[in-house]
């Protein structure tokens, strides 16, 4: 791909837009369609595009494998951690009402936001990891 300037430029222009859109989908999922799964996949698609056009090595520099492996487990940890925090605050596992003692609805908001964040991190990291595993197999 090194000798094709148009895809390289297009990818460069598209990448920030894709990442921004992923973040929008992630945090706007409460109000419109979207959420952690979609945001994670879109984010991963942006990185995959970068990897396809600029080569695997530069994509690996952008998202080093240790970061991805951290992300895979961190997302699950965030999700389960929210449940445990709810448990410690005196509620049931994953019962977000207790996250905010004054306003259960706000607690629900917070809980859903955190949980979706966990899902998004895990999905994005998993998709990028799988892509790297497939693409790196050839070398």
């Amino acid at each position: 791909m090194k000798h094709y300037p148009i895809p390289r430029l297009a990818a460069k222009l598209l990448l920030p837009v894709i990442i921004l859109f992923a973040l929008y989908v992630q945090f706007h999922g409460d109000y419109g369609p979207g959420g952690g799964f979609q945001a994670g996949v879109i984010f991963a698609a942006g990185i995959i595009l970068y990897g396809l056009v600029y080569g695997l090595d530069s994509a690996r520099q952008l998202c080093p494998p240790w970061l991805l492996q951290l992300g895979i487990s961190l997302g699950v940890m965030i999700y389960a951690g929210v449940g445990v925090v709810a448990l410690l605050l005196g509620g049931n596992f994953l019962d977000y009402n207790v996250l905010d003692p004054h306003d259960p609805v706000h607690g629900q908001h917070l809980g859903i936001l955190l949980v979706e964040l966990g899902v998004g991190i895990t999905v994005a990291a998993v998709m990028i990891t799988i892509f790297f595993a497939f693409a790196g197999r050839r070398g």
Partner: peptide
């Protein structure tokens, strides 16, 4: 109960 418009979420 939840306070967010998107029921799916």
């Amino acid at each position: 109960e939840i306070g967010i418009p998107n029921m799916v979420t």
